[in-house]
């Protein structure tokens, strides 16, 4: 016999299912009347300091089909790398957004401010990135990943450095398609599979 560890196991995840929108984004499915104010509609308010950017993409399944039912949440700091609630954080950046693949095209768009770099506990700097969490029918536990930016200095980023197969790093890097415009596609499975995280 040993002493007991006073720990509880984490509750098991279950799929968000095909109707996740009625709970998390009711206006997406025409149910906007239910709440006065839907949360996660924008990560920024007008006047946020920094470069305003738009990231467009799709979530593809293992057959190459752009999923119509994926729901994504994003979390990021302001242009200086400070998260909402931290000292000195930009009051116009709440940092959280919910967005969904369009029911017709399967494309999503995130309009936000470009984030600043964030330090690790040991002081090493991480390149600017946005954290994502993806849920949908057939995804049994939400998938974590990150968006980095092709026009930032990513070579010293500690997370990207841990990716053994170097071509896979590209799956986490948004490609610039115009001024303030980026493309970021997510592939759940197979060729070009996105690096998903366990953090």
């Amino acid at each position: 016999m040993t002493q007991k560890l006073d720990m509880l196991p984490e509750t098991a995840s279950q799929t968000a299912g095909p109707y996740v929108h009625i709970g998390l984004m009711p206006s997406y499915t025409g149910n906007g009347q239910i709440f006065d104010q839907e949360i996660g509609q924008s990560p920024i308010e007008e006047g946020a300091a920094g470069e305003i950017i738009e990231i467009t993409g799709s979530v593809y399944d293992g057959t190459g089909w752009a999923m119509r039912d994926a729901l994504i949440e994003s979390w990021q700091p302001d242009a200086q790398g400070r998260f909402a609630g931290q000292e000195g954080a930009d009051p116009k950046v709440n940092g959280f957004c919910r967005f969904a693949a369009d029911a017709t095209s399967g494309e999503f768009t995130l309009r936000t401010v470009k984030p600043g770099p964030v330090a690790l506990r040991d002081g090493r700097m991480q390149a600017p990135h946005i954290s994502l969490w993806i849920v949908a029918r057939g995804i049994n536990i939400g998938l974590q990943t990150r968006i980095y930016f092709e026009d930032e200095e990513n070579s010293a980023d500690p997370l990207l450095a841990r990716i053994e197969q170097r071509p896979r790093v590209e799956t986490l890097i948004a490609k610039k398609t115009g001024a303030g415009q980026y493309r970021f596609d997510i592939r759940l499975q197979g060729e070009g599979e996105t690096v998903f995280l366990d953090i």
């Binding site: 399944d61 506990r121 954290s131 949908a136 057939g138 974590q144 197979g190």
Partner: peptide, 20 residues
Amino acid sequence: TTVARSPYLPLLSMDSSASE
């Protein structure tokens, strides 16, 4: 539905940072 929507490759593990 999980068959075409589950990653084949292992997840990348790391200690959490302020981002998480």
